[in-house]
Computed example of a mutant assay.
Amino acid sequence: MGKIGCLLIHGFTGGAYEVNPLARYLRETTDWIVSVPTLPGHGRNLHLEDAHAREWLAFAEEELERLWRYCDIVYVVGFSMGGLIATHLAIHYPVSKLVLLSTAALYINTGQIFRDLHVMVKDATRRRLHENEWFGHYKYKLLHTPIRATWEFRKIVLTTRPLLSQINVPTFIGQGLMDGIVPPKAARYVYDRIGTYQKKLYLSQTSKHLICYASDCNDLFGEIAFFLNCEDHPDDG
């Protein structure tokens, strides 16, 4: 087998930090070239005023082509919106395997959001809101995400979702059952619609949206590594 590369793509309004725990795991357990680029306008500090869906897709294509300069085989991992971008790459380029985490084919999980908000209200009444991880993570995003950028995200969803049946490479689908952004049913939606019979569905009992930070993330990472290293991928959904 030739040199292997793995491209990890983060989500909308996110950055490399969203998938860095998985990237570290893969670097520590393999000799692969692991690439975790930051999409234009994204990162810890957001600059999404002039963001365009086509720019995000083109950037991901360039990063994929860069990996192929050094690798014979390339896997693509996508988180949230990055899962849709990864789907685009797998359909249009000879990607060997695909990993989709918390993929935003459907969104918003209102039930979980109300549960999270209830926790936030309790924290606020106890004057502990600043300690609430959910609140701190999304407050900045809400204040720095232009409406137009959200429409660009929707373009990614609306143009990619109808193409799921064209995926014909082995695909791993991971989803947190406590995700407040992407409803858990999105994972089954993707699983049922992708064209490949070589697919695996993994559900985390404890994970919210940032699945790479769940308390059981090491189990998830082990499953992903096994999937990517395995030559045979039976349908086990």
Rank of each mutant, 00 (worst) to 15 (best):
F59W: 07
V34M: 08
E28H: 09
N20V: 12
K200T: 12
Y17G: 08
R24I: 10
N109A: 13
N229V: 04
E131A: 09
L39A: 06
S165I: 05
R24W: 11
L143R: 14
A60M: 01
P184K: 08
G82P: 02
L210A: 11
V76F: 03
V182G: 05
L228H: 06
Y197I: 12
K141I: 15
M178Q: 14
G174L: 02
A53S: 09
Y138K: 06
D116K: 11
D31T: 15
K185G: 09
H144S: 13
I113R: 15
K122T: 07
S215E: 15
L8A: 10
H144L: 04
T171M: 08
K141N: 12
I73K: 14
I194Q: 03
Q112Y: 05
F12Y: 09
A186S: 15
L163V: 04
G15I: 12
T87M: 02
T171S: 09
A187C: 04
T13F: 06
F135H: 07
I156F: 04
L220K: 00
G82K: 06
K155Y: 12
D72H: 10
V77T: 06
E63A: 08
D179P: 00
S96R: 15
V95F: 01
I113Y: 15
I4G: 01
T206L: 03
H47Q: 15
A90Y: 01
A60H: 01
Q166A: 05
E18A: 14
F79W: 10
R54Y: 12
I9F: 04
V119T: 13
I91N: 01
E63F: 11
L117K: 10
Y17R: 13
K200R: 12
S102A: 15
F172P: 02
K97M: 06
A51D: 03
W134D: 10
I4E: 05
L98D: 02
Q205Y: 01
E62T: 14
G180E: 13
M120P: 08
L67E: 04
F172H: 04
I211T: 03
A51H: 03
Y138E: 13
T196P: 09
V182P: 04
V121G: 11
K122P: 00
V99I: 14
K139M: 09
V169N: 05
L100P: 02
L26Y: 09
E223V: 01
I173E: 10
A51K: 05
L142P: 00
F172A: 03
N218C: 09
H118K: 15
A104D: 09
P37N: 14
R154T: 13
F221Y: 12
F153S: 00
G14L: 07
A16D: 11
T145L: 02
L101V: 02
K208R: 12
E223L: 01
I73L: 07
V190F: 02
G111K: 11
K185S: 12
Y140S: 07
C217Y: 13
T150Y: 11
F135W: 14
P234V: 02
K199N: 00
A225D: 13
L98S: 02
R128V: 02
H118E: 15
G41L: 06
F227N: 04
G136H: 14
K3C: 01
L158W: 13
Y213G: 10
V95I: 12
I211V: 05
I9N: 03
R188H: 15
L210M: 11
L201M: 09
V182E: 08
K155S: 11
